[in-house]
Design a protein around this nucleic acid. Sequence first.
DNA 1: CTTGACCCTGTAGTGACTACAGGGTGGATA
DNA 2: TATCCACCCTGTAGTCACTACAGGGTCAAG
Lengths: 140, 140
Amino acid sequence: MTQTYTIGELGRLTDTKVETVRYYERIGLLPHPPRSSGNYRVYDRAHLGRLGFIRRARELGFSLEQVRELLELSGQDAQPCEQVDELVQTHVTDIERRIHDLQTLRQELTQLLAQCQHGKVAECRIIEALQPHVDGQTAA
Amino acid sequence: MTQTYTIGELGRLTDTKVETVRYYERIGLLPHPPRSSGNYRVYDRAHLGRLGFIRRARELGFSLEQVRELLELSGQDAQPCEQVDELVQTHVTDIERRIHDLQTLRQELTQLLAQCQHGKVAECRIIEALQPHVDGQTAA
DNA sequence: CTTGACCCTGTAGTGACTACAGGGTGGATA
DNA sequence: TATCCACCCTGTAGTCACTACAGGGTCAAG
């Protein structure tokens, strides 16, 4: 009655490429499953759950190292979830920094675009803005 | 009178690691410079300018492939700067998509954090949210 | 008994660097 | 002149999270 899955089925159920499932096993995120007589990997519902967890965490932008920690923490039912909180908070802060950086970038580029007169490359403000301001001096 | 630089000087002037300068040469972004009697790379102001251009474009988030195109375009003084515009516009669109994705992510995570009751891991909403909804059915 | 979909291992590629290991060069100092 | 040290050289491998083969084996259907 305990349902089993091939690697392909597991992949389909979790939207994961077969190669990726094997990769997770190689790096120790998924346990080595038992093998069939034909040397096929045989997964059960626990594997399916664990892989689902990994994939969901990845969708939320956690690194595999963070996923590893989350998996570790998720097993410690009796512990306070402080560390979980902290990990997620760190991740949010990181995301906010990235958003901010991208917004700065976007503004710089938008300004460049606005300055473009749609003339020849020679007088293009964009190209110009990329040229470093190398002055004429022959410094020692 | 034509000033020259060692790779280290070039690196300092453009805030680039020496290894990175050599890397750019290896992938053909920077030309092979002449060598000194002791086999040291000897750079001139043109190299400095080109590397400065590359670094500035990288700061603006362009990929090395895009930088390659920009360098190519920047040499065609007589051409209209339409292609430059287009490349930058594509990049802005890409950045906007990334900002949007990150904002979505941020909201999801913030909601998770807000739901956390700061209790035990067993009843943690965050861990729970990561658990896939595997139902009890034994589907064929 | 053959086809075709699936599975296996192992290796190498992606982007943009970064980090060695193991050596050579060049200028200043003792 | 010897030695020191900062710098330079080449070549290779590591990072992250996969992805893409090559070259084979397995299994169920027709």
